[in-house]
């Protein structure tokens, strides 16, 4: 099926992109397009105009700056998969399929804040920082403030997620996923990271309206206790034909235990 018609613009720099967005608030940013274009093909999304930032070289690639990796938002899942980033390569292996990973980008996925995406759990557990540029300049948003709601991230109107700052060394990390049999998106996914200072952070995705930290799990693991049960309240989770909130809550417990055993 064809998407509804739209105007297409391609930005040649971040600066130009921001200027174009300031001028035309209807512009919808397209990165790899692997969430947006399927929605447009089903006409669930009908943006009047697209701003393509996929080709911006300044947003692509991974470089090390001291204790952090700085990852360009347009770095593809395939590049992430083959990188030396902590945890993210393991997670990227679970994203989509090889063709999706060649086009889909880490920044596009994180800014899109799909509640069943894989990366957000890793981002929260790693405590990454998001570098966002807008008309007023650049700001840095901690992972805990990035995922605001269902398909809603801290990236505001007229803003662009440019980079992700990821701690370069951690002592251990793991991502455990239970996938939807049809879409292969996460029904539940849990990331657990043992940081350089020994602190353990953990987060889940897929089960609720947005990815969130798992404070009870962190408390238990940091106290040397097993992961246990009851890590999330089913009342706050999503339910569908394939997985009820109660089942998702149970899966978070199971996956947390498995991930914790690996870090």
């Amino acid at each position: 099926m064809y998407p509804a018609n739209f105007d297409y613009h391609r930005a040649s720099s971040v600066q130009e992109a921001l200027a174009m967005m300031a001028e035309n608030p209807d512009l919808k940013v397209i990165a790899g397009g692997h969430s947006l274009l399927p929605a447009m093909r089903l006409r669930l999304a009908q943006p009047p105009a697209l701003l393509d930032v996929f080709g911006l070289e300044e947003l692509r690639g991974i470089r090390r700056e001291g204790d952090v990796f700085v990852v360009g938002a347009m770095t593809t899942h395939a590049q992430v998969l083959r990188s030396e980033l902590p945890l993210f390569p393991e997670v990227a292996h679970e994203v989509g399929d090889p063709m999706v990973r060649n086009r889909g980008t880490i920044g596009g996925s994180l800014a899109h804040a799909d509640p069943s995406a894989d990366y957000p759990a890793a981002a929260l557990a790693l405590g990454v920082e998001f570098v966002i540029r807008g008309p007023g300049g650049e700001r840095t948003v901690p992972a805990d403030e990035m995922f605001v709601g269902m398909f809603e991230s801290a990236v505001g109107l007229g803003e662009l997620l440019t980079h992700i700052r990821i701690p370069a060394s951690v002592r251990g990390s793991a991502y455990e996923k239970f996938k939807h049999p049809a879409s292969h998106y996460a029904i539940a996914g849990v990331a657990v990271v043992r940081h350089a200072d020994g602190e353990i952070r953990a987060a889940y995705t897929g089960a609720g309206e947005r990815a969130e930290r798992l404070p009870l799990l962190e408390e238990r693991l940091n106290a040397g206790q097993p992961a246990g049960e009851g890590l999330v309240d089913a009342a706050n989770l999503l339910g569908d034909r394939f997985a009820s909130p109660e089942y998702r809550a149970h899966l978070v417990d199971v996956l947390a235990g498995r991930a914790a055993a690996r870090v």
Binding site: Y8, G33, D52, A78, M99, V100, N102, R103
Partner: peptide, 13 residues
Amino acid sequence: GEAVKSCTVLAVQ
């Protein structure tokens, strides 16, 4: 040189 799903790439891209 990379495998992609050509239904999810715009011709203009």
